[in-house]
Amino acid sequence: MLEDYFRQYGLIALFSGVAVSVPVGMLVLSWLFSLVRVRPRKPDPVKSSLYECGMAPIGGARWTQFNFRYYPYALLFVIFDVETVFLYPWAVRFHQLGLFAFLEMLAFVLVLVVGLVYAWRKRALEWEG
């Protein structure tokens, strides 16, 4: 039983190795093509400049400001993601737990739904307003 368990994860580790080597191999192949001059390599300052409507971009893009509306979604995501972590084992063993577990989970989810309704009423799920 335990041996079976390790064997499975061993195969998955093996699979991960192959899965990483496939895209890496593609990149290496592409790089080898540039060594034998099949793939061109003609660097040019204009070519490697950032694409932005044909004008040189002003200021860095990486630490630019972005819409604050993304934050509430991230917060809600964390809440509901933790909920799903609770729901999975509950669902698998539900047939042994019975009515009590059903009511318990209903109460737990309702608390979260109150939060969702609150966010909805506060228009945190809207984009304008």
């Binding site: 950032l50 860095g60 630019t64 972005f66 819409n67 993304y70 991230a74």
Partner: peptide, 20 residues
């Protein structure tokens, strides 16, 4: 380091985690 790419990435995170 491109603005369009950054906006795309922001949208991606918001959308993908929401549909998760």
């Amino acid at each position: 380091g491109n603005r369009y790419a950054m906006f795309g990435a922001m949208r991606a995170v918001a959308q993908l985690i929401s549909y998760e």
